[in-house]
């Protein structure tokens, strides 16, 4: 009995998929138009996604370059400094922090300032002029949390001063938000356009086959049997409409990156673009889910409207 049921299902599934493909074929012009527009939408989405991903990577890179410097009270002990380090390490918004001792600070300063003329610094040999400049440099993973972290640090015992760059932090976190809003807005519009298109295509398919559907129902075809092919039609259009632009974007992305790095070597030096793999690791599943999802929703809307048994 169980075996029989499974067999029946498989033959129904093959039928449904076969009919879905036939629907697309019978309805060539409309399917093609749908796939083309869908491809355009997903292409735009992919383009946008790639740019945003790169921008965000740039912002992240810039963010991680902005450091907060914590300076200590005079005569602080090593134990106290260590305790402060421990407090810092507990904060979730801190991605990295490093300790610079007064001696290291002086060495770095000497290297920067005196360059090849180290003998000029000899006079300071036993009397470090930067004796009070031991410090922690803190790098954050979320720059918008900077003010919270700063006020926390200022309240710690043994902290003399916290140096930060307010302007850089604000600009970066605003920029990040702006990118988020714009991408959400554009993606929403694209999704709506695509849903409308697919729903239109399925609608035409249903209109053309009104008679056929009426016959199916009179013979006693169940809801799923009548609807299935139209759902498959929508899903397939969505899938094809996602795969085509993904392939184009994949080829295009690599070429554009090479072009930009060669033509504008300055930009290339300033920032490392994300590799094709890095971008597509997220873009492929997102675009496929988007395509298939839009196809499903689009066909469902029309079917619900027209196929009440």
């Amino acid at each position: 009995m169980t075996k029989k049921v499974t067999l029946m299902r498989i033959s129904t599934i093959t039928y449904t998929i076969g009919q879905g493909i036939k629907n697309i074929w019978r309805n060539k012009m409309f399917s093609l138009a749908s796939i083309a527009t869908m491809s355009a939408c997903i292409f735009m989405f992919g383009l946008f996604f790639s740019v945003v991903e790169n921008f965000q990577a740039m912002v992240k890179e810039a963010e991680s370059g902005v450091a907060i410097t914590v300076l200590f009270d005079d005569g602080i002990t090593d134990e106290q400094i260590e305790a402060i380090g421990e407090e810092i390490s507990k904060r979730p918004e801190v991605s990295e922090y490093e300790y610079t001792s007064a001696e290291q600070a002086w060495e770095e300063f000497k290297a920067d300032y005196f360059g090849d003329h180290q003998e000029l610094a000899e006079g300071f040999a036993d009397d470090n002029p930067l004796a009070d400049s031991a410090s922690y440099s803190i790098y954050m993973n979320d720059i918008s949390m900077q003010s919270t972290l700063v006020s926390f640090l200022e309240d710690l015992d043994g902290v003399r001063e916290v140096r930060k760059s307010e302007v850089a932090a604000n600009t970066l976190s605003d920029f990040n938000k702006l990118i988020g809003y714009i991408s959400a807005g554009i993606i929403l519009i694209l999704i709506l356009v695509a849903i409308f298109l697919i729903s239109n295509t399925v609608n035409t398919g249903i209109a053309v086959r009104k008679e056929e559907i009426a016959i199916m129902k009179l013979i006693g075809a169940g809801d799923m049997f009548v609807r299935g092919p139209f759902v498959i039609e929508g899903l397939l259009i969505g899938l094809i409409g996602a795969v085509i632009p993904l392939a184009i974007l994949y080829v295009l992305y690599g070429k554009v990156i090479v072009y930009i790095t060669e033509k504008f070597s300055l930009l290339g030096n300033l920032f490392n673009f994300l590799s094709v793999q890095e971008v597509f690791k997220t873009l492929i599943p997102v675009a496929l889910v988007l395509g298939v999802g839009i196809g499903f929703v689009g066909s469902q809307i029309t079917i619900r409207k027209h196929l009440k048994v």
């Binding site: 067999l7 039928y15 019978r26 056929e212 006693g220």
Partner: peptide
């Protein structure tokens, strides 16, 4: 008559059986 015009007559008759989920 109301036959499905895009299928041959074998498929037209077979269709009624597919609708009820009859095994191939």
């Amino acid at each position: 008559f109301r036959l499905l015009k895009d299928r041959n007559i074998y498929d037209n008759v077979a269709f009624a059986m597919k609708v009820v989920g009859a095994p191939t």
